[in-house]
C-alpha cells in the first residue's frame, strides 16, 4: 500500500515529455542530402553548432549521416561554421 502511494506521487511530479523519435527513420529517407539546407538547419543551433542526438532524438546512424551532410554543406558555404 505504502509503495503504491509513493509510486503514484512520483508519477505526479514527473514532467510530461513527448517521446523523441528519429525523423529520418520515420520518413524512411533514403539518404540525407547536404543540399537540403532547410532540413539541416533544424538540426543546428542558432550559432551554427550541430545539436546532439539526445536533444533531437535522431538515431545513431542518421546522426552520423547528418554530421557528414552538415560538414559538406559548410564546406561549400551553404551553412556557416559559426554565426557571428
Amino acid at each position: 500500500m505504502i509503495h503504491k502511494g509513493k509510486g503514484s506521487e512520483h508519477v505526479k511530479y514527473k514532467r510530461f515529455m513527448r517521446k523523441k523519435f528519429c525523423r529520418f527513420c520515420a520518413e524512411k529517407t533514403p539518404f540525407i542530402d547536404y543540399k537540403d539546407t532547410r532540413t539541416l538547419k533544424s538540426y543546428i543551433t542558432e550559432r551554427g553548432k550541430q545539436l546532439p542526438s539526445r536533444m533531437t532524438g535522431t538515431c545513431a546512424r542518421h546522426q552520423r549521416e547528418l554530421t557528414e551532410a552538415v560538414k559538406r554543406a559548410r564546406n561549400i558555404a551553404l551553412l556557416s561554421f559559426m554565426e557571428k
Binding site: 533514403p30 539518404f31 559538406r72 564546406n75 561549400i76
Partner: peptide, 15 residues
C-alpha cells in the same frame, strides 16, 4: 574560387 566534388553512394545513385 571554391569547388567540391563528391562521389555518390549506392542509395544516392538509385535516387
Amino acid at each position: 574560387f571554391k569547388f567540391m566534388i563528391i562521389k555518390l553512394r549506392k542509395k544516392e545513385i538509385i535516387a
